[in-house]
Write a protein that binds this DNA or RNA. Structure first.
Lengths: 232, 232
DNA sequence: TCTTTAGACGAACAACTGTTCGAAACCCTG
DNA sequence: CAGGGTTTCGAACAGTTGTTCGTCTAAAGA
């Protein structure tokens, strides 16, 4: 057992800046990474509890004991996938919010803030990209996740607070409580895009796979949320 | 095995009009009903997969074999809870939409339609009532449910179509596709009110248990959704 | 009164769960 | 080549899962 504990100090900008799992040699994924991607896919599709370690190791074509050797336990594997994807998503959102701040002299309008919140996860839902399973995984984690995961989501207010602060600046006429609720509602638009709807995203109006369909969906969501914020 | 198959033809207005489980004798719940309420509670709190039949029978203080005797299997029990609660919720929504139609000569405004859609499930979230676990169960079923459940939710468009039709009448300037998306977003406001937020609903601003807090939340949600629909 | 039958009960079943262990195979450094 | 550390492998572990079986109780029907 020479495996170091995966330090799970997740806030935002930490977690070394590399996005993808290490590949030991050009294009040849190590066992650890094979397990990671197989587990993420199966968890995202079938749910956390319905997937056994045997399902994962079979999908990854590795030995049964690999999960406990490389990750310590099934739950630790689950948590590592969760922390990595959460950090990636938070980074993408924070980057867009930062750009919006830079473009508007520190006082971005409501629409720009909401766009920074909504665009990253919806972009991941593009059926062409391989990040679809990552966002499916994260959406599942919100309801099926461990108590530990929900604690992370709840205590990681430092991330969402940047957005609520920006919205408070953009909407000075709204109370803090009002901003909280409307931000909460706006997040609901994203989290409700679950699996039944993913098919709809694919099949609606004869194929949603056009290049700009995802951007159109983002625009629709931002429009809807912005109207809710700008309501007199 | 003299148990008849639970006929699961769920659409809307069927399922005999009695709301609560039959009580064999005054106040004395039969084994079947004890299992039903215990299972609903445990499923709502801990999730579907994490609850075993032994957990349920222990909570209900009945024999282990009771579930398979009265319901056929664990999945059949789960499905019966789901169909009953779904029918109840659909009935409540349909009734409010009917009343809105009657009050506005068949052409209710957007706000009335959205209120009929949002108010029933949020009223159930009242921590004082005993329906909180029912709505928690239904929200869980939306993501953790069987394929069979999601099929029911998806194919039961006859229910949601009443609302989309009413919204089309109320918003003649919007295309059918636009109405569909905004209705989808509005539903997201409800389904995102999950468990972490239920606590918030209880503890926010020093206790949300006041009589009119739930109505205030409904008003906030309807306001937000209405703004998204009336957006020019 | 005897017979029938729905239900409750305890015990057991086979299948599957996550995890552990020791040995074998591997790889890189001497 | 020989070394030790790292990884893989097959097998097994103990525990839990949903389900089934035969038996027993008790109330209803004739």
């Amino acid at each position: 057992m020479t495996q170091p504990d995966p330090s799970l100090g997740l806030t935002d900008q930490d977690l070394s800046p590399d996005d993808e799992p290490h590949l030991t040699q050009a294009g040849c994924a190590a066992t650890r990474d094979l397990v990671f991607v197989a587990a993420e896919r199966l968890f995202a599709v079938h749910g956390f509890q319905k997937v056994s370690v045997r399902d994962i190791t079979a999908e990854a074509k590795v030995n049964l004991a690999s999960i406990n050797y490389h990750f310590g336990s099934k739950d630790a594997l689950l948590l590592e996938i969760f922390t990595r994807r959460t950090a990636e998503l938070n980074r993408a959102r924070a980057k867009m919010l930062h750009e919006a701040n830079a473009a508007h002299a520190g006082k971005p309008p409501v629409r720009a803030v909401l766009h920074a919140l909504i665009a990253p996860p919806v972009r991941w839902m593009d059926p062409k990209g391989e990040r679809l399973i990552s966002v499916q995984f994260l959406i599942r984690a919100r309801s099926e996740g461990t108590d530990q995961m929900r604690d992370i989501l709840r205590t990681d207010v430092s991330h969402l607070r940047r957005f609520s602060d920006a919205l408070l600046v953009a909407c000075p006429q709204l109370s803090e409580e009002e901003v909280y609720w409307r931000l909460h509602f706006s997040l609901g638009l994203i989290h409700n895009n679950r699996f039944a709807e993913f098919d709809r995203l694919n099949t609606l109006s004869g194929g949603l796979t056009r290049e700009d369909e995802v951007d159109l969906l983002i625009q629709r969501m931002v429009d809807f949320a912005e109207a809710g914020f700008l309501r007199s």
